[in-house]
């Protein structure tokens, strides 16, 4: 466990808490893509099946349970409790465009052709593209609430810190998880455009709005 990994996990947790707080305090899911949140719930569910088969550490187990709980609570807020505030009109990304290639790729390129391992691979590939419905929604409406941009910032920061974690682990432990690294790089690239807007607009006190 290194500092990049810990900070990455904290950023990830913070992102999910920020999103839940936004929904809870404003009693509204306006501007949030329910489709991205369903994909994240699917990511955690398929990745953390090893909770039942493999013990790694208390930290690992507790964090997995918290991530699952946050993720399912968010989906419940959007499609249950506050569904009348959910902007389904603008959440129009076609999920099959992501799910079909991701499913196909996880069968083709994995470490072991076993159900658990294919599901783990599926979750890694899916996570790398799961934010696209949210970014699509922002580009469609042309704006995002500032708190939503903080959520996206911490989610992007988490992935960036994981890249540093992998570089660290490669040098100190000779650990190299090719599937996670390649997907992680792809995922981080999707945030670059957003990071630019976040720094040039949101951090200067302006609302994120696209021309």
């Amino acid at each position: 466990m290194n500092v990049f990994r810990i900070l990455g996990d904290v950023s990830h947790l913070l992102a999910m808490i920020i999103l839940l707080l936004k929904i809870w305090r404003s009693k509204s899911c306006a501007g949030i893509s329910g489709k991205s949140q369903i994909l994240f719930a699917l990511v955690f569910t398929t990745r953390y099946l090893d909770l039942l088969t493999n013990f790694i550490s208390i930290y690992n187990t507790v964090m997995k349970i918290i991530f699952l709980a946050c993720s399912y609570t968010t989906v419940y807020m959007i499609y249950g409790k506050y569904r009348n505030t959910f902007d389904s009109e603008n959440d129009s990304f076609r999920l099959e465009f992501l799910l079909v290639p991701v499913t196909g790729l996880s069968f083709l390129e994995n470490y072991n052709f076993t159900p658990l391992e294919i599901l783990w691979t599926f979750s890694i590939y899916l996570e790398s593209v799961a934010i696209l419905p949210q970014l699509f929604m922002i580009s469609k409406t042309g704006e995002a609430e500032t708190i939503t941009t903080h959520y996206l910032f911490f989610l992007g920061l988490y992935r960036t810190l994981y890249l540093a974690n992998w570089i660290w682990r490669y040098h100190t432990e000779s650990f190299y998880d090719q599937i996670a690294v390649v997907s992680g790089v792809v995922q981080t690239i999707f945030y670059c455009d957003f990071f630019y807007l976040y720094v040039t607009k949101v951090l200067k006190g302006k609302k994120l709005s696209l021309p």
């Binding site: 990994r5 996990d9 990830h12 990745r47 090893d50 493999n54 790694i56 550490s57 690992n60 964090m63 997995k64 991530f67 470490y111 072991n112 391992e117 783990w120 994981y162 974690n165 000779s174 650990f175 190299y176 998880d177 090719q178 996670a180």
Partner: peptide, 10 residues
């Protein structure tokens, strides 16, 4: 090296 049966990251 990668022990694929033990994914220790979140």
């Amino acid at each position: 090296s990668m022990d694929s049966t033990k994914h220790d990251e979140l």
